[in-house]
């Protein structure tokens, strides 16, 4: 099966490990990976800040980039959701609405793709460690992907799972919110860190690189020993 990776700009520039793990994992599951060079950013930071005009150009670029793809898979729930928003953003546009719709329909978040399209629930990974999982807001509430990461983690050999208290609460990232409302963001991420600590785990796992960068960055600053991993990295361990 041909899969086109939508890496996201954050992963491309700052979290290469996540992207590598996603690529290797999908290959191991029998996919043939493509990485179109013309992919840029999905436009979310500008869009969410209210700069709709500015972000539309980036969106059009992305629609074009992935026009030939069979499946578009992203290791970020939030960015995958952004592609799902495109048809609403271009609603009424005679050219772009339909193209946006086509892209939205073939876009999947990584774990969603593995479970729903590849129909694989056990990726054959083994990972020794105590793990908790952060359910990202955009991925669960807006994209509606709740079960797949849980199913996949349950089947990882050696992995011990503890549920995160207050798991439904936002970590305080929110894109530019993290810098625009830094004061509030700090309180939110601190509560999340406290909850992670309460579980006593060694690893915090999540499916959204941005949330992990937020929680991880705060834990690092506070000198907490919990390690942060993207779910692709866990599923790629064997």
């Amino acid at each position: 099966m041909k899969v086109t990776i939508f890496a996201t700009c954050m992963v491309d520039m700052f979290q290469g490990n996540v992207g590598k793990a996603a690529v290797e994992l999908l290959e191991r599951l029998g996919c043939e990976i493509e990485f179109p060079e013309s992919q840029v950013c999905c436009g979310q930071p500008a869009y969410n800040s209210g700069y709709v005009k500015e972000s539309k150009e980036a969106m059009k670029r992305m629609i074009e980039t992935f026009s030939d793809a069979e499946y578009v898979v992203s290791p970020s729930g939030s960015c995958a959701f952004m592609f799902n928003e495109y048809p609403h953003i271009f609603a009424g546009d005679p050219v772009w609405e339909i193209k946006a719709q086509t892209l939205a329909e073939k876009t999947y978040e990584l774990t969603q793709f593995i479970v729903e399209v590849l129909k694989i629930e056990d990726v054959g990974a083994s990972f020794e460690g105590n793990v908790t999982y952060h359910t990202s807001c955009h991925m669960t509430r807006l994209l509606g992907v709740k079960e797949p990461p849980m199913i996949l983690l349950q089947n990882v050999k050696g992995l011990k799972f503890t549920e995160l208290p207050g798991k439904e609460q936002c970590c305080g990232f929110g894109g530019t919110f993290a810098v625009k409302m830094a004061q509030i963001s700090e309180q939110m991420v601190d509560e999340k860190v406290r909850h992670v600590e309460e579980t006593g785990v060694d690893y915090l796992v999540g499916a959204d690189a941005a949330c992990l960068m937020n929680i991880g960055g705060r834990m690092e600053r506070l000198g907490k020993p919990v390690k942060v991993l993207h779910i692709a990295e866990v599923l790629n361990s064997h």
């Binding site: 890496a7 992963v11 491309d12 520039m13 700052f14 979290q15 290469g16 992207g19 590598k20 690529v23 990976i33 990485f35 060079e37 993290a178 810098v179 625009k180 830094a182 963001s185 700090e186 991420v189 960068m213 937020n214 960055g217 705060r218 690092e220 600053r221």
Partner: peptide, 24 residues
């Protein structure tokens, strides 16, 4: 922009090799 971010948290250093380059 990173200033407000790094007042509270660390930010990862950029990849030495971008994912796209690694892939290529």
């Amino acid at each position: 922009l990173l200033k407000a971010w790094t007042e509270i948290r660390d930010f990862p250093a950029p990849n030495k090799e971008r994912l796209r380059d690694w892939f290529k």
